[in-house]
Design a protein around this nucleic acid. Structure first.
Lengths: 200, 200
DNA sequence: CGGTCGTTTGACGCGTCAGTCAATCACCCA
DNA sequence: TGGGTGATTGACTGACGCGTCAAACGACCG
C-alpha cells in the first residue's frame, strides 16, 4: 500500500517533469533546453530532475516520446466517436491544424526530426511514430473502401503516405507563418485531396 | 589594384568560412555548432572567424543564407537548359531528391525551419526563400499552360504550393530513412502528381 | 628601409550549465 | 519515539566554448 502510493506520486512527478520539458523544448528548442528551465517550470529543483532522469538527454528524449504518445491518444480518442470514414479523415485534419496547443506539437515534431537526423535511436523512434500515424490514415481509407464510400482504385498505403506528407510539408510553413489565410489554405488543400482522390 | 586583390581574398576567405559553417551545421546542427569547428574545417583560427563575423550567430545565419542561395542558383542553372515545362518539373524533382549532397541541403532546411520558429528575422528570410521556390514551380506551370501542354483548369499558385508541400513532407521522411525504396516512392509520388493533375 | 594597415593567430578570461553530493525533509513502521 | 527509507534541495565543481586582445605577420608604400 505504501509502495503503491509512493509509486503513484513518483509517476506524477515524472509526468510533471516531462510536461515541463516539452514546454521548454517548444520554447527554447531541444538543444538549448536547460535542466534548470525544466526544473523551474516543473516547480522543483535540478537535483530532482536528475533524480528521475540520469542525464538531460534522458529527460528530453522521454519528453519527445511523451508528447508523441499524447498526440496519438488524442487522435484515437476523437476517431472512435465517429463512424463515417470520411468524417474521420476530415476530423483528423482539423485535429492537427497548427493552432494553439497543436502548434506546440508541430514544434516538437520539427525538433524531433532535426534531432533524429543525427541519432539512430531517435531515427528509429521517429520511424515507428510516423508509421503509426500513416497506418492510422491508411486504415481509415481501408474502412472507407470496405464500406463502399471511397473509390476502390486507390492504394490505401500510397494515399496515406501522400496525405501525411502533404500535411507535414504545408504544416511546417503554416507553423512558421500562422496566418488565418495559410491555415485555411492548408485545411482546404487537405480536404480537396480527400474529395478528389477518395470520393468518386 | 591592391584594394581589389585584397577584397577578392577577403571574399574567398568569407566563402571558405561559410562553406565550413554549412558543413558543421549539417553535421552537428545549428545549435551545437562551435566556432572552433568552423575554424578548423575552414583551415583557419577562431580569431579569424570572428574577424569576419562578429558573433557565432552571424556566421550561422550567413551560412543558411549562403546555402539557400546556392540551392536556388543550382535550380535556375538547370532549368534554363530545358525548354519543355514538363521536363523542367521532372528535372526539378530529380534535382532535389535527398541524395548525397542534396541530403545535406535538406538537413539545412530542417535546421533553418527549426531555428526560424524562434526568430523573426529567420522566419521572414524563410518566407522569402520559400516564396521564391514556390514561385519557380508556379511559373513553370504557367508556362506549360500558356503553351497548351498543361491543363487549363488548374490554379498554378495552388498547385505549386501543394507540390512544394508534398515534396517537403515526404522529403523529410526520406532524409530520415534514405532507403532506395523510399527515395523511389518520393520520386514516383511527385511524378504522379504532375501526370495526374497537369496532364490531361 | 622603416612605417602603416589589413589580416591572422591562439592563449586567456569569463560566463554558463550539467551532473554530483552531503545535508535535510517527510513519511512510515516497529 | 527513534530509526530507516525514499525524495528533495541547491551549493559546488569541472568542463566547455564564445569573444577579446595583444602580439605577430606580411604586403605595400613613401
Amino acid at each position: 500500500m505504501r509502495d503503491m502510493s509512493v509509486a503513484v506520486a513518483e509517476e506524477d512527478r515524472r509526468r510533471e517533469i516531462l510536461d515541463a520539458a516539452v514546454s521548454v523544448v517548444v520554447e527554447r528548442g531541444y538543444a538549448a533546453a536547460r535542466v534548470s528551465d525544466i526544473a523551474r517550470r516543473a516547480g522543483t529543483s535540478t537535483g530532482t530532475v536528475h533524480y528521475y532522469f540520469p542525464t538531460k538527454v534522458d529527460v528530453l528524449d522521454a519528453a519527445l516520446q511523451h508528447a508523441s504518445e499524447r498526440s496519438h491518444q488524442r487522435h484515437r480518442a476523437e476517431l472512435v466517436t465517429l463512424t463515417e470514414p470520411r468524417e474521420q479523415l476530415l476530423r483528423l485534419i482539423d485535429l492537427q491544424l497548427p493552432d494553439a496547443d497543436v502548434a506546440d506539437e508541430w514544434a516538437i515534431w520539427l525538433e524531433f526530426w532535426n534531432e533524429a537526423r543525427r541519432r539512430d535511436e531517435l531515427r528509429e523512434r521517429n520511424h515507428e511514430i510516423y508509421t503509426r500515424w500513416v497506418s492510422m490514415i491508411e486504415s481509415i481509407v481501408r474502412n472507407g473502401q470496405r464500406q463502399g464510400q471511397f473509390r476502390q482504385d486507390v492504394d490505401p498505403a500510397d494515399f496515406a503516405l501522400r496525405f501525411a506528407g502533404l500535411f507535414d510539408g504545408l504544416g511546417i510553413q503554416v507553423l512558421l507563418q500562422p496566418s488565418l489565410e495559410n491555415r485555411w489554405r492548408l485545411r482546404a488543400a487537405l480536404r480537396e485531396v480527400v474529395e478528389r482522390e477518395l470520393l468518386a
